[in-house]
Design a protein around this nucleic acid. Sequence first.
DNA 1: GCGGTATGCATACGTTTGTTTGAAACGAAC
DNA 2: GTTCGTTTCAAACAAACGTATGCATACCGC
Lengths: 219, 219
Amino acid sequence: MPVRHGATRDTILDAAEQLFSERGFEGISTRDIVKAAGVNLGAINYHFGTKERLGVEVYVRCLARVNRNRIARLDALEAAGGGRELSLAQVVEAFVRPAMADEKEPVSSGSNLMRLACRCFQEPNPELRKFIEEQFTEVALRFHSVILKVVPDLPAGELFWRMNFLIGALNRGQEIWLRFDRMPRPQGIDPVKPDFEGLIQRLVLFATAGLSAKCPIVG
Amino acid sequence: MPVRHGATRDTILDAAEQLFSERGFEGISTRDIVKAAGVNLGAINYHFGTKERLGVEVYVRCLARVNRNRIARLDALEAAGGGRELSLAQVVEAFVRPAMADEKEPVSSGSNLMRLACRCFQEPNPELRKFIEEQFTEVALRFHSVILKVVPDLPAGELFWRMNFLIGALNRGQEIWLRFDRMPRPQGIDPVKPDFEGLIQRLVLFATAGLSAKCPIVG
DNA sequence: GCGGTATGCATACGTTTGTTTGAAACGAAC
DNA sequence: GTTCGTTTCAAACAAACGTATGCATACCGC
């Protein structure tokens, strides 16, 4: 029945990705996964050992892709700029866009990439968090140093927190965008759902302003 | 044994609040809760019916307090201002501060209030989400209209998204602040953990800039 | 005092959980 | 065509899960 080597393994990863992104790691059972994947119950333990190791692999696979993409975009920007200084908006976009879509997973409201990139920050399981956080060290360092160059009068100590504010805004933006149609929207406000590019544009605008806010002179 | 009416019920609520805030709703069992609360296993079902209804009550109790506080702060600001226009920073602070501490729960790294106010946005359980989101309708409307007054050239359609960016930044800021000491911090960046007021100040600065960013002229 | 409602407790119920087992089916090598 | 390592399968495992039951105890108006 299996067509190629490792097919079952990948099927499980894909099914688990989808389910975890919707209900979280603790909210999904191994039986949910094998049923969705159409494979045997024993397959998870055979291929991954434990449910937790499967969880780690799902999240790491997704985040590695996103973060590789972020760095690639930054590299491309710097190469294209040829020594000229980048704009902060360009840098922020290079950070934001890969969390939303890439060549393998084009934009859609059913996008696993975006959904999982959100959920990875929301998993309370400490073991999972450990591996998830590891995926961000390289990207954090790269963007940190680039942004410091682009926003010269920003104290280094401030950037750490502002980067996290950006990450939070990104997550929340994604979450609301994905759930928009199924969400009880407060009447009297009547928000509109922008298309995908509109969301990025709004995020970039917000975060760019936030990142480059002048620090009040202390003392 | 019980000293006053409803003591067991409240003990359960407090214990569940603490545990849910750390591991999420799905990550905690009824047995975890009764053990932490020091009450009988049957007590949860007796007082709340189901685990899910206990979950709803825990989150609603916390959010009702936070959001009541937000509105009270806004009322106080408007009363004190006596018709003068508020500053955006004041409004943002009125939104941010109640999610971090109040008279019942002063600031500390063990603060349940802050931890739970974060987790409430991260629960994947749809039933829980429904009740959680309900808690925000009033506060959303109030702050929406106030901010529109304070940032006059902000298109109403934009504010919905920027408010959510603010919420995201707030959540992420809280989360990182709470976990700061137990977190693997990227070397080469060496961030410092501000005190509580410093966190609020940074959040207000970031969000104020983001909220009042000028929209690029389209067309 | 007494009756009745509200609460506490120990225990058990039926499911679902993650994981393990041992045998069957497979593909490639020889 | 037999062998061997790998993968799939149905079935079973013990443990943990949320919940229900039956009975003891407390409280309160009377």
